[in-house]
Nucleic acid binder design. Structure first.
Lengths: 197, 197
DNA sequence: CCTACCGATCGGTAGG
DNA sequence: CCTACCGATCGGTAGG
């Protein structure tokens, strides 16, 4: 059963909003936030400029929504992975979860990484808070594996590896995201030549 | 026969050009290429819009110059490191060289990583060719250390770690770039928990 | 009366 | 090397 809505909305409301965010993410990832106009986004989403302003009060809010919704999914995934079990299992679960979310969200992820400075201060603060939580969880997991004092640097190097994948990893290629995730975990644990030493 | 004397080049020519590139790199890194106008760059460089067009025919050419000059330095550093000696020594030399170049060129590096799609096709081809050379050298060095078949993926994960540093590493902080480079090398070689050695 | 949505156009500013 | 401009396009809003 459907709860009573406070305000009537088009039955396609969520679908249209999502279509706008998908189109915006693709354009912002390709040309940059300032390089894609509201009209461009409207065109790519198959709607009109006026409709966009019905869903988002300003251009910044589209960018904020793209980042925030993607980041919420990543934070939720990190929280789940944290309670998996042993330290190694936690890291494996975290990395696989991240890689699975990146696939199919490569545009959103690139936008998240590159366009932080184009947010308003309030929106930036919100996004940074979510990022901090994701980093804190990752740091806690890595602190159980490597030197505790190095957990921050290790977390940053770890994020470097997985955040960079959007530039070269092809989800349509032969390698599954889970396989790539396991390679990252193995590298974090044992390095390139575990057999020799 | 000579209607116009060739305009003598200012003795400050190179210095002014460099000042423009420094200002442009900072603005493009902060706001994105499309978010910073020619007038913004001129202002930040302490010159005029007209002067900018005296040094660069179009806005794209400033972007191209920022990327190409930074990348040339990286390729030269990679070539030098390649002949250092043993595989481990090569990787160490390469990583230290990269990290040293990133310090003081963080704006240029961010621009290189983010703004490739805003180049003209010809300029992009030029930049991509330089990048390919840098990747090939790195891949060759890593092929001597890990599994040869995995050299490409290992090179991408390696670039992820060092390319991401511009977002969190503070050159003015207590950690020297060389120390960070050695941590990356150690991670590549032995992972987080090097019990053996 | 409400909301959803469109075609047209606002005052300013972009690269050149 | 500046001011004056241009064709076009910007983010955002008007009336219906």
């Amino acid at each position: 059963m459907v709860a009573h809505m406070a305000r009537p909305q088009s039955p396609d409301y969520d679908k249209r909003r999502e279509a706008i965010l998908v189109a915006a993410a693709r354009l912002y990832a390709k040309r940059g936030f300032s390089g894609a106009s509201i009209a461009d986004v409207a065109n790519a989403a198959g709607t009109s400029k006026s409709l966009i302003y019905h869903y988002f009060p300003a251009k910044d809010d589209i960018l904020h929504a793209v980042m925030a919704e993607h980041l919420d999914a990543l934070v939720a995934a990190a929280r789940e992975a944290q309670g998996t079990g042993a330290p190694d299992a936690n890291l494996r679960a975290l990395t696989i979860a991240f890689m699975r979310h990146y696939v199919g969200a490569q545009d959103r992820h690139k936008v998240l990484l590159n366009e932080l400075d184009n947010l308003t201060p309030a929106a930036r603060q919100d996004v940074v808070a979510k990022q901090r939580e994701m980093i804190a969880i990752t740091e806690a997991i890595l602190a159980e594996i490597g030197q505790r004092a190095d957990a921050r640097v290790n977390a940053m190097l770890f994020f470097g590896m997985i955040n960079w994948t959007h530039t070269w990893f092809d989800p349509a290629g032969p390698v599954m995201p889970e396989m790539l995730a396991l390679r990252v975990v193995e590298l974090m644990q044992k390095g390139l030549s575990p057999q020799a030493s």
